[in-house]
Design a binder for these strands. Structure first.
Lengths: 343, 343
DNA sequence: TTACAAACTTTACGCGCGTTAAAAATATTA
DNA sequence: TAATATTTTTAACGCGCGTAAAGTTTGTAA
């Protein structure tokens, strides 16, 4: 490694004994130059460390190698985890992932898109906030930039959606709960932002009806993203009133379930399957922490990996084909029942 | 809002009836132009939406308005949370935060720095991995870019460090535990990457000695970032052996404690203060989930906000002074005991 | 060896903006 | 109103690289 500082591509071309346009070609596609030429450049790269100026490279492009990844909230380990997986796949695909969280705020969500726009991204992978999203704002962005949604679907936004099949996964866990004990009631937020919540409730209602049971939906008041707190407070109140319609609670998601579990503990209610247990509690998502709750949380795992792979592959195909597809694809992956201690 | 597309600053200057250099001045500092001029530009901005081309703006600068934020792992809610707080403050300070996670991988950590370097950041705020970090690599970066460390200190790296005073916070919780029950043993990972772990153990040892108690340090085998799992497995083994030196366990951090709590539950050991409880468990950090464990986790909260404010303020001062300071500042904030149900 | 395609070099322009120097316009003060 | 200070305009260059056209070299096949 020489300590000579290379200031620009001209200098680097000089020390590698080639012309700048050839070196430029190499950086845009190493396979576009002759093997011998490539070898000379790579030899020079080992000797003098040089990386093309990021800003100059992108200035003349109307589209870069950046791919934006937007999730509703990076503080939620579920989204942090899937964002990480997606980021890895984007990098493997030869693109540069740019990760942004919307903090549960629709204004921030649009801000993120506008900030991304400045980066002239090749495409965007977005888990939208859902009900609270500024749908027109999203559409406006998606008209200009190839976008694939994941996690939450928003009608007609983006070129495709990849997510979990809530209908089937809720059916699976409802059937399981009915088979192994009292039919569950359904615990959800009164005004959930995430559209999956609605699908889950509807699937609960349909499955209960199909199985010939009377459904009960319990709604927790409260907004924002402190799901555990919302679940905790509502459940505490519920337990104090001792008017649960059944001893089995299916929560719309694991974070609510974690709050409900905590409330049960504080209320002195033993949760689980065995004798001496007053309550069964189940969730949905297989949140990273659901393995370590007390008791461990029975839930439905989403197929992270499949979802991540599918949406990244779809976006890259979209980008590299160069045409906006006329039909909007919607892809679902089945969840899997994770039987643990709580139900 | 006119639908005429503004392609560049020349066109925008034209529609606002000013010259391009004046408009350029405005975008670099709105206060550098006359009030009347500013008003004309802002009027035009409302009518035609125009944002200077990000790449062109930065191309000629050797330093931009970007500030990098690097944390060991974005999947850890603790870091996600503090990164969010820091990001907000950076944005408030007029800089653009760029968030990166190292995934517990020292190679990724250096990669992140190299990627940031391409963005010519004004500065970087980094929570390093610690023991596993490539210290020489970090130093090389910090020579070129103003950097302030937070959370974990690494000797002689960066211009300053801002973090928690582990010595005092562990002393506080050890004193509390001794005062209210059996003196605690200390539960930690055998090979912790985070340097805070060492400080915490040493403070535990010193405090126990000062109080005239015999210290006991328990070590969990296992590497990586699955702290809950590591804590769970080691504690399960420990509980099965029934050879705990005391009924009180102080864990090096909350994520380990969450695993230990889970193990206690699975082992049928009731955790808490009251009669009928076999065990007390405490943690450190006030992890976002520690409010919802069963029982809720007694811990020490780090002063997130103060740490974030301090390190952002320090970095911005550093950047705006333009000189690398000759002495490296180290700032600690005291933690606060959070008494909850587990101890 | 010749012929020809592929790869490379040379030359030159453009991207959008920062920035500077000199000239012109505008505001402030006396 | 004149003199001065401040701001804006005009004109022009440069940043580092993408890219295109025309000419030259190199590699490959006949």
């Amino acid at each position: 490694m020489s300590d000579m500082k290379i200031r620009n591509m001209d200098e680097f071309a000089a020390v590698s004994g080639l012309s700048r346009p050839t070196v430029s070609k190499y950086f845009n596609d190493p396979d576009s130059v002759r093997a011998k030429t490539r070898a000379r450049i790579e030899e020079a790269l080992e000797k003098y460390d040089y990386t093309p100026n990021f800003f100059a490279v992108n200035q003349n492009r109307n589209v870069t190698k950046n791919i934006g990844i937007i999730v509703p909230n990076l503080s939620d380990p579920f989204f942090a985890e899937i964002a990480r997986t997606i980021g890895d796949l984007v990098a493997e695909g030869g693109y540069r992932p740019v990760l942004l969280g919307s903090r549960g705020d629709p204004v921030q969500e649009i801000d993120n898109l506008e900030n991304l726009r400045l980066l002239k991204p090749a495409g965007v992978l977005m888990a939208p906030l859902g009900r609270t999203s500024d749908v027109e704002g999203l559409k406006r962005f998606c008209r200009d930039v190839p976008t694939v949604l994941f996690d939450s679907n928003v009608d007609d936004v983006g070129a495709a959606f990849v997510g979990s099949n809530n209908v089937s996964s809720i059916a699976v866990i409802v059937e399981y709960l009915c088979r192994t004990g009292e039919p569950p009631c359904f615990f959800e937020m009164a005004t959930p932002a995430n559209p999956n919540a609605h699908k889950r409730r509807n699937s609960y209602l349909a499955t209960m009806e199909r199985l010939g049971h009377t459904p009960h939906v319990l709604r927790a008041e409260g907004g924002g993203w402190d799901f555990e707190g919302i679940g905790f407070r509502a459940a505490t109140h519920l337990f104090a009133g001792r008017n649960l319609p059944t001893n089995t609670i299916l929560c719309s998601n694991d974070r609510l379930a974690i709050g409900v579990l905590s409330a049960a503990y504080e209320s002195g209610l033993r949760v689980g399957l065995g004798p001496g247990c007053a309550l069964r509690i189940a969730g949905h998502d297989d949140h990273p922490f659901s393995r370590y709750t007390c008791p461990t949380l029975t839930t439905v795992s989403q197929d992270y990996t499949a979802i991540a792979e599918s949406c990244v592959a779809r976006l890259i195909a979209l980008i590299e084909s160069g045409v906006m597809p006329e039909t909007r694809e919607v892809v679902y992956f089945d969840g899997r029942l994770e039987m643990r201690g709580s139900a």
